[in-house]
Each structure stands twice: as structure tokens, then as C-alpha cells.
Design a protein around this nucleic acid. Structure first.
Length: 545
RNA sequence: GCGCCCGUAGCUCAGAUGGAUAGAGCAACAGCCUUCUAAGCUGUGGGCCGCAGGUUCGAGUCCUGCCGGGCGUACCA
């Protein structure tokens, strides 16, 4: 980035002025072109502590500033105390040269090297196919995992497979009734049972295999339950596969019981005086930990509530030695997080390693109308349906392009539009355009030459593009650290826009022997940035469109 | 009631750690292809950044209180 030409010099100048400034120096890109290429507000933010006028401080800093005039052509103090820098084309060319020599490491960071991160996402209950709304969790989680990988972390992608608990009983019950209804259609279906057609399908399969013949009710439920779990697991995995998502670990909830982690956890909470019996249930004394109210962790029926296995599961993840443990949850799970973290902390584990992404819900719109989906009504709009309708690239991009904290309006009409209105195509088109030029250059015997003379790149649009491209690593790091993949999507849109402008104003092929090579290389670097970025978002980068 | 999230252009949304005249896409209007992909580019119009205080040299951004919407607030997950 352009910062690199002035950052250490500014530090030195500040020290020279008797000021030690531990934080990184704040830089920003001025909105107005008259304010140079880069700006710093460091004098304004330091002025108060130093009890000096910010402009005066800026003047003494600038006076002490020893900059390389090959790279920096102008330094101005402006407004209340901004220092604005203008750079020479050589500075930009040098940034581009760095990106060329970075090779396959372009846009990759090393901030996570040697660290292990676990990203848990999707984690939908195996009680049915993934529905369209699940797509947001899938896309966010997978992109975050990709971001961590791009930053050098060793990433474990994990799916918490909730195959124990009440909802599985309900699944078994639903299948069992559908099975019996084959003989006796009048039999009432459980009011809160899973009403989707897939339940009928599973029941019919069991029937055709005669799997329940001669079985007791209890055995039948068990078989139905397993059949349901298997069906859902297969269905979910298939959907994830078409979304280009592959988990390293499917963590089965029931192993928390079979390995005794759950009972051990209850025991520890009891010993710590944080669990007690009341009304036949076991309660978690959250009020002792600053919570609003105590919560049940084992029901009077003897079954645990979701909190207990969740605590045990987080304990398990932390004990596996991850430096960072990321959870991706929908906002409907928001209440559980503080409870679980309190529990984990009470067990003596370091919860500062846990980072939670909470995304808001998704509303699907079509023809200006809200489309309502109810998993249990049978009128299920599945993620498969959505993928089939709009394509994987659109699904992944639409779910990632907004900040997780806001409600997402998924415009199905826009998503289905295969043209300029659709924001995904804007990015892909830029990539395809570059690929096309590179291919065309190849046809005329010209290939991308990494040793091209970059000194011919002086056009304003070329410099703007280079400036933007040089921010790729920083953007990836920031998106990763803030767990906000949408900032990468936004960045890529800017890159595509800057390329389109460059492409429009600066002819590449036949622009002159040296210029042609240099511009072709610039285009290729842009292509790599787009390609890598799209890969992080799980979107394909087509050669042709 | 309480907790968390969100209120920015007609619509959908961006707005780095507080910075200079608040941005993009869509929609509307007007231009640009005998030349590398017009799925592109350029221009015009469009705003009490929910409201009211506060902190600050400076607030869309931080604090408080309202108003409006969402999600929670289970011996469901």
C-alpha cells in the first residue's frame, strides 16, 4: 500500500518531535482528488494529548519528515491538520512490481501462521433438508473459514450434528406416524411433527424394505429415527457439496454423551456450586455468574436441554487446542450464547478464544412479495430449490454481500436476472474480460511477461487501479479479523469497477510495445486479485461469459 | 417488561481506528461500440444519515434517552 512509503518516516518524524506513538498511524484515502493520494490524521489525534495546535504539530512533523522524493512528490498540510501525500508514478509501479513478485502469495497473509482455528457453521438439525434461509449461515461460515485459510491459519471446518435431543424424538415420531398412515390414513399426525414430504418418503422407503415388520414400537421408533437421521445427513451433505462446502469434521452430538463429557460437565458445575436440583430438574445457577435467571440444564424427564451439550461441546472444542473457535449462529440463537459462554468459563476455560458471528434472518422477495417458508408446514423452500433457481454463484454472493448484522432481503427476481443488474456478474464479467484479453494476446504471440517494464504506466486510471489492488492483503486481513466477509465483496466490486474504467480508458492490446506488455501485466494482476477474492467467497471466476 | 440486532437517496445497501463537500447498485433521464467482451463506461437528478440531547477542534460513526422494525426472553434447538 502507499502507506509503506511514508509510515516509518512519519514514525521517525514523530519521535523526532518528541512524541512516541505506539498505535499504527491512521491513514485514509482522501475522498477528494485535490487532497492527494493518501492522508493521515495523526497530528489531529495527537494534538490534544500534546497540548498543541494540530496544524503546528503537523508543520513540525512535516519539517522533520525525510521522504524519498523518488516516491513522494508532494506533502501538504491542509484543513485542521491533515497531512496529504501525493506519490509519483514510480511509487505505484513499485507497488505493482511487489504484487507481481508475490506470485501465488498475492493477497495472502501470514498473520495466522502457526495458529489453529475451528470454524463451526451450518450445524442445522438433521430433521430435514437445508432450507433456503440456511444458505446465509453456509455462505458466511465458509467464507470466514476461507479468509482464515488465506491468512495462514490452520482451519478446521466443523459441523455440529445435533443428532440427540428432543427434536430427534420428534423426527422419529413423525416418521413412525407417516409409516402407520400407509395402512391407516386416518391416523392423526402430531401437531408439532415434521410435516415435510420427505418424512413420507422416508416412511415409504422403510415400508418397501419391510424394515419395521414385526418390530416393537420402541424398535420401530429407533429404526425410524436412524433412517431419518441418515436421510437428512445425506441430503444436507449433498446440498453443501453443491455449494462447494466441505466440512472436515461432522461432530455428532451423541458422542458428547457416549464419551461422558456431558455428565462430567454437570458434575463439575455441581462441584462448583453452579448446578442444583429443583422441581425434579437440574438448574444452572446463571444468576451466580451475573446472568438474569437460572436455567434448566436437565429436565425433570432426565433429558438435558440444549444448553448442557452446547457447553460440553464448546469445552470439547477448546480442549482440542484451537487458538480461535468461531461460531456462526442465526439471530434466533442469540439467547443461548451468553449462557453457554458462562458455562464454559465456569469450567475454567478461556472464552476469549471464542468468537461468535450472529447473522440476522433472511427474507425472500419475489415480485415484490414476501415469500414465507415454513419448515413444518410441508411448504418447504429448500436450499436446493434456491440453488437450482439462481445458481451457486448467485446464492453464495447474495448471502455474503451484506453485513451479517442486518436483515437480508434476498430479491429472487434480481438474483435470477442474468445480466447487468446482478452484482455477481459485474465481478465475474471483469474477470472474464481480462481472461479474454489475455487469451487474445496469447493468440498474437504475446503472453503475460512478469519482467515487463512498468515505468510506462502513468495513466491516472492505471495508478488508481494499482492503488486499489495493493490493498488486497490488508483487506483480506481486515475481513478475517473482523469476521466480515462482506467487506471483501465490497472491495472486489471496487476492483472490478476500477478495472472497467481502466479498460475503457486505456487500450491494452496494440497500445505500443512496452505499454502493451505493462498493461497486460496489470490486467493479469487484477485477474489474480479477483480470482483469489472470488475463491474466498466461493464464487467461480469464469474465463468466458 | 428485559436482552441483543437494525433505522443512510424512491428501492436494496456500503460507509477502516471519529475527519475535509456522505457513496455504490437498481429504478428515471441523457450520452458513448467500423477498435481488446456495451454483462461495460460517462453524465444528470435524487439526502434534517429515525428523533432529541451529550462528548469533541470535528459525529452517519462514540454516550444517554426516546420512536419505529426484527430476533430472543422454554423443563424447544
Amino acid at each position: 500500500m502507499l502507506n509503506s512509503f511514508v509510515e516509518s518516516e512519519l514514525q521517525a518524524a514523530l519521535i523526532n518531535a518528541g512524541i512516541t506513538f505506539a498505535d499504527p498511524i491512521p491513514f485514509e484515502k482522501p475522498r477528494q482528488s485535490g487532497h492527494g493520494h493518501l492522508s493521515t490524521t495523526v497530528c489531529m489525534s495527537l494534538a490534544k494529548a500534546q497540548k498543541v495546535n494540530p496544524r503546528t504539530l503537523a508543520e513540525s512533523v512535516v519539517a522533520a519528515l525525510k521522504l524519498d522524493s523518488r516516491f513522494v512528490s508532494d506533502v501538504q498540510i491542509a484543513g485542521p491538520g491533515f497531512i496529504n501525500f501525493t506519490f509519483t508514478p514510480l511509487a505505484f509501479q513499485s507497488l505493482l512490481a511487489d504484487m507481481v513478485s508475490a506470485g501465488s502469495a498475492l493477497g495472502k497473509s501470514t498473520i495466522g501462521v502457526g495458529k489453529k482455528v475451528n470454524v463451526e457453521y451450518v450445524s442445522a438439525n438433521p430433521t430435514g433438508p437445508l432450507h433456503a434461509g440456511h444458505g446465509r449461515n453456509c455462505a458466511i461460515g465458509d467464507s470466514v473459514a476461507n479468509l482464515y485459510a488465506s491468512c495462514g491459519y490452520e482451519v478446521t471446518r466443523e459441523y455440529y450434528f445435533n443428532n440427540a435431543g428432543n427434536q430427534m424424538n420428534l423426527l422419529a415420531e413423525s416418521i413412525s406416524v407417516r409409516y402407520k398412515q400407509i395402512e391407516n390414513p386416518e391416523l392423526p399426525f402430531p401437531e408439532n411433527g415434521y410435516k415435510g414430504d420427505y418424512i413420507i418418503q422416508i416412511a415409504q422407503e422403510l415400508n418397501s424394505q419391510k424394515a419395521l415388520v414385526g418390530k416393537s414400537q420402541e424398535e420401530a421408533l429407533q429404526i425410524g429415527r436412524q433412517a431419518g437421521e441418515d436421510w437428512c445427513f445425506t441430503s444436507i451433505k449433498k446440498t453443501l457439496q453443491s455449494l462447494r462446502i466441505s466440512h472436515d469434521v461432522f461432530f455428532n452430538e451423541d458422542t458428547l454423551y457416549s464419551t461422558g463429557v456431558v455428565s462430567k460437565t454437570v458434575e463439575q458445575l455441581r462441584n462448583a456450586g453452579l448446578a442444583y436440583e429443583k422441581d425434579g430438574a437440574t438448574w444452572f445457577a446463571l444468576t451466580k455468574l451475573g446472568g438474569q435467571q437460572d436455567k434448566v440444564i436437565i429436565k425433570s424427564t432426565g433429558e438435558p436441554t440444549y444448553r448442557l451439550p452446547d457447553i460440553a461441546y464448546h469445552r470439547n472444542k477448546l480442549e482440542r487446542g484451537f487458538d480461535v473457535v468461531v461460531d456462526v449462529f442465526g439471530s434466533d440463537h442469540i439467547a443461548t450464547i451468553p449462557d453457554v459462554l458462562s458455562g464454559v468459563q465456569a469450567l475454567g476455560l478461556d472464552t476469549s478464544k471464542v468468537r461468535v458471528i450472529i447473522h440476522q434472518m433472511v427474507t425472500f422477495f419475489e415480485n415484490g412479495e414476501i415469500v414465507k417458508f415454513s419448515k413444518r408446514s410441508g411448504n418447504t423452500y429448500t436450499l436446493d430449490d434456491l440453488i437450482e433457481e439462481v445458481g451457486v454463484d448467485v446464492v453464495r454472493f447474495f448471502f455474503i454481500m451484506r453485513t451479517a448484522g442486518t436483515h437480508l432481503e434476498f430479491d429472487l427476481n434480481l438474483a435470477k436476472e442474468e445480466g447487468d443488474k446482478n452484482p455477481v456478474f459485474y465481478l465475474q464479467y471483469a474477470h472474464a474480460r481480462i481472461s479474454s484479453v489475455v487469451a487474445k494476446a496469447f493468440d498474437k504471440g504475446l503472453s503475460v511477461t512478469e519482467t515487463a517494464d512498468l515505468s510506462v504506466l502513468e495513466h491516472e486510471k492505471e495508478l488508481l487501479l494499482i492503488d486499489l489492488l495493493s490493498r488486497v492483503k490488508h483487506t483480506v486481513e481486515r475481513a478475517c479479523e473482523s469476521l466480515e466477509p462482506h467487506t471483501l465483496a465490497e472491495y472486489l466490486r471496487e476492483v472490478a469497477a476500477a478495472y472497467h474504467v481502466f479498460y475503457h480508458d486505456c487500450r491494452i492490446l496494440d497500445s505500443g510495445e512496452e505499454l502493451e506488455k505493462a498493461r497486460l501485466l496489470l490486467a493479469e494482476i487484477t485477474r489474480r486479485v479477483l480470482n483469489n477474492g472470488l475463491a474466498i467467497l466461493g464464487v467461480s471466476a469464469p474465463q468466458k461469459m
